[in-house]
Write a protein that binds this DNA or RNA. Structure first.
Length: 109
DNA sequence: AAGTTGACAGTTA
DNA sequence: ATAACTGCCAACT
């Protein structure tokens, strides 16, 4: 029996991370896309908030999740912005001006 | 209980 | 293309 103070949406986070883990290398998805695939259509912000709770050493490819227009969600010039940009580039997804071409690299399940 | 926040998105100007 | 504004909803104060 889980303690009452434990967040009860652990399964929701699991579902979201599972969807993110299914994004193939070399492809990306938007927050809203992840939300919809996870069965939480319209909850893009919730997906973003959930991503923020990922531990640093996680296997979840969080860097493959971008805004709908292909921009990185972090503030430009920030450390995380550059980090995500680097991870994507190393995977073969070019990032120009903090942005990925969704028409080319958007994951289509 | 009420107000604020946010790794978002869509519409309008 | 950019910016302002609105809608959204769970988590947090």
């Amino acid at each position: 029996m889980p303690s009452a103070s434990e967040p009860q949406d652990v399964s929701r986070e699991q579902i979201i991370w599972q969807v993110v883990c299914s994004i193939p290398v070399g492809h990306v998805a938007s927050y809203s896309q992840v939300a919809e695939l996870a069965g939480f259509k319209g909850l893009a912000r919730f997906v973003g908030r959930t991503m923020g709770q990922l531990p640093e050493g996680s296997d979840v490819p969080w860097h493959r999740v971008l805004k709908q227009d292909g921009r990185i969600a972090f503030p430009p010039e920030s450390n995380r912005f550059y980090y995500q940009s680097r991870l994507l580039t190393e995977e073969g997804v070019p990032v120009k001006n903090g942005r990925v071409s969704m028409s080319r690299f958007r994951w289509q399940p």
